[in-house]
Structures are given as C-alpha cells and as structure tokens.
Design a protein around this nucleic acid. Sequence first.
RNA 1: GCCUUGGUAGUAUAGUACGGCCUAGUAUAAGCGGCUGUCGCCCGCUAGACCCGGGUUCGAAUCCCGGCCAAGGCGCCA
Length: 439
Amino acid sequence: MKIDTISEVSRTHFSYDVTTKLNGKEVTLVGWVQEIRDLGGIRFIILQDKTGTIQITIPRKKVGNDVLSKSDFVQKRYSVSVKGIVKETKMSPRGFEVIPNEIKILGTAETQLPLDITGKTPANIEARLDARALDLCSEQNVAIFTIQHHAVEAIRNFLFKEGFLEVHTPRIIASATEGGAELFSVDYFGEEAFLAQSPQLYKEQLVMSLEKVFEVGPFFRAEDSHTRRHLSEFISVDIEQAFSDSIGVMKLLEKVIEQVCSNVNTKCKRELEILNNTLEIPSIPFKRLTYDQVLLDLKKEGIKIEWGEDIPTEALRVLGKLYPQFYFITEWPTNSKAFYIKPYSDTPEKCEGFDLMWKWIEIVSGGSRIARKELLIERLKRKELNPESFKHHLRAFDYGMPPHAGWAIGLERLTMLLTGKENIREVSLYPRDRTRLTP
RNA sequence: GCCUUGGUAGUAUAGUACGGCCUAGUAUAAGCGGCUGUCGCCCGCUAGACCCGGGUUCGAAUCCCGGCCAAGGCGCCA
C-alpha cells in the first residue's frame, strides 16, 4: 500500500468541532487511528486529533473499494485523512458519525506499540516515560499540557498588562548564584562554567534599568533528590520589580494565581473533566501565616521545631491539612533564606522572605531583596560565600540599585495543582531527574 | 547521599510466607480466521516472560550473596 501525499489534503474541521449541526455536510478530518472495531460487515475507526476523537463508520457494502482497502490496511497510530459525510445517529458515541468517501494514509506506525494507547492496561510511569512521545498522545496528557499552556498564557498576559518586560538571562554562568544548591558544570571553551540554577542575580540587576521584568524558562539543579516534586531541569516563572517590597509582590502574586485559576477554569473545562479535577478560583487575599504562627500550629499538633530551623516535609504535610489551599508563610528566620533576602531592620533575625504554599507543597518563593551593598556582603559572609566570586554582581549595587522585590513560581508544581497530578514528572514533557536523561 | 519496597511476555499482573503439583496462570496488546451497530465489541486459534552473575540443593521464578535498574520516602528545594 502506497503512502498518500499530504499536498491534496486540507483539514476542514478538528474532531471536536464536528457537531450534529453539520449533518449531511462533507468534512475532511486529519488525525490518527486510535482504535479499530471490526464487526465483519461494519467497521468502526476511532480517529483522534489534538482536540479529541470522532467515530468513522464504514459499512462494508456501502463504501467504495478504495475506502474499503485503505480501511483494511490501517492500524493503530497510522496518520490518516478522512473525507466524508457527517451523519446524525443515536447509535454512535457523540450522536453522529462520519461515513467516508475517501481515506488517505499519511503515515504508518509499528503494530506492537510499547504502551496501550486506549488505556485498558495502564503502564507505570517508567514505561510511559521511556516511550514518552507515544505517551504524550493520550487524551490525559494532551489535557495536562493544554492546561499548562493556558496557565502560562494567563501569567504572561497579566504581567504584560502590569507593565512587565519579558527578558532572557544567561543559562551559562561563571559561578553559583545562590550557593548551597549543587550546580551542573559545563566545559566552556576549556573553562569551567555552570548551568544557571536561577536568574536571581541578573533579574535583580535588570530592575535598575527595566524596572519590572519577568522570565519564563528552564533552570538546573544538580540535587540528588528523589521525590515526586523535584526535577533536575524545571521551568521557573521569575519576576523582579523595582520600588517594591515583599508586600507589593505578594499582592501581585495573588492576582497572578487568581488569573491563572480563572483562565484555566474558563478555557480548559474539558481538560479538567478529562483529568477528573476541579479547580476553585481562590479568594484573595490568601491567608498569611508568619513562621512563628506555623511553629505554634505545629506545636499544637505535637510537632516541635526549634526556632530558626527549616520546616521538615513531614511537618509541612500536617500544615497542609490545617490549611488545604493557598497560604503564605512570611517572616522567616533570616538564616534559613538565601543571602539576598532582606532582613527586617528592627528585627534582623527575621526577614522579608515568603513562600506561597499550596497544601504542603511550596509553589513560589520570594521576598524583598537587599539593596545595600554592605549588607549584602555581610550576608554573603554569614552564609560562608565568598564575596569575591560575586564581584560583578556586587558592582551593580554601586550604580543605583533601587529597593526591589520578586518571586519565582515553579511552573511544574503549579501545573500539578491545576491538573491534580501528584508526580511532577507527569507534568513535564520530557522530565529530567536524578536517573533520567532520556528521552 | 541515606532508608524502604520491588524487578515475571509489548503492557499490567498472579505465583515467592513454607523450594517440587509452574510443562509459569490471567487480562490486555500483537498475528490469523469469523461476525452489520460497536463504543473496554464479541468468539476461536497462534506466538510471546521469571533483570544479570555467583552460591545452597537431587531440584530455584521462589532461599542466600554481589551487581544493575526502578518506584516511594527523607534531607534539600521551585
């Protein structure tokens, strides 16, 4: 059987756009064979495209020889075009079917696929990721990444409206931006360089000129973590704003989250249904808990944490049950946050850093930044970082650094809550983790 | 990095406590044949697997040791 050429094919409708209103009309559909049910005298082909599925019905005695032989030849995952007449009938899943006049075969596929694309025998995450290109064809996965798209769309639109400029900072850097986290090293023309773990230092410098900036892009952490919420390469949505503080950027963040939820809710109704997830639009302002309050709450639950310590995952899970939606944790101990987070001037042991939590997972972290060079150097030393390796960054503070603040959303973590998925690898197209570098 | 659990056809699993009845069962996918209203179609037939290496034993999918791989948890973080 010869493969047909695409040149004569032009799609008139996506599967989802076909309705009973088109009864009797001719449509041309393009997509993939998802399933074939052959009953002998009649054959049903379920055609899939990115919008959904549609039933092609082939009564053996009522179609031409060419249609019959093409439909004999097709297998699951073959790319085809189908030109045919829409026919209303109660016997088909969506109330209509398409009776083909012409089928073109545009591409083939191997017969024994590594995953069951109909979902009758679900594969585990490892097998799915090994065959990710095929896995992504599932209705569920199309729904996940459609939702992620509309989340980013809402973020971009809102930030544009608020006067933010979208920027692109380097991924290849000479030294650690924050210290602490492990970096991937790369050979840069014989010199050691690193993959950026965050745009932090660059976005701070940019507020001196562009005032309000944001960036959406991948960052890299060589942490040896093995959890359902960590990736070695993840997408960060970063903003930084001049002449603002943590209170200001928290208010902005609430609006961003609200916009995301409402955009996804209105544009992704079907996707949410497919994922069996409901999304509430959170009311703002979000609850603000101080670190001290969190410690008190946890004490009541029988969990004791020394002041100044980070909150362990086990405790966060308990906290997530007490506050099962979005909430901020503010006024962190200065030493538990990165060196660039601004301490309160009256109580310097606490800082203007915050985390936005969703249940027990940290979705966003941010804060007011230190704008004074001397204080920044002091904080670097306190964190046992060498100010010398930050000299280019520190110099920027001599050129008119305004007070500023910002935050960073973990896009995959945000997508997890939007889609109801509990494994971050489900919401990353090609996840990179401690043990996975392919595909 | 540490801890726990696991690795059986393309996929998903049963069998492992107490070694023999496992010539390794089932579902689904695949191949062939049949069927005019399926929608997890149905029916018949065919083919397909015990992670690798060593050990114990008359006998190992099953027990022991080593390795590799995975999932989950912790620490760390977005």
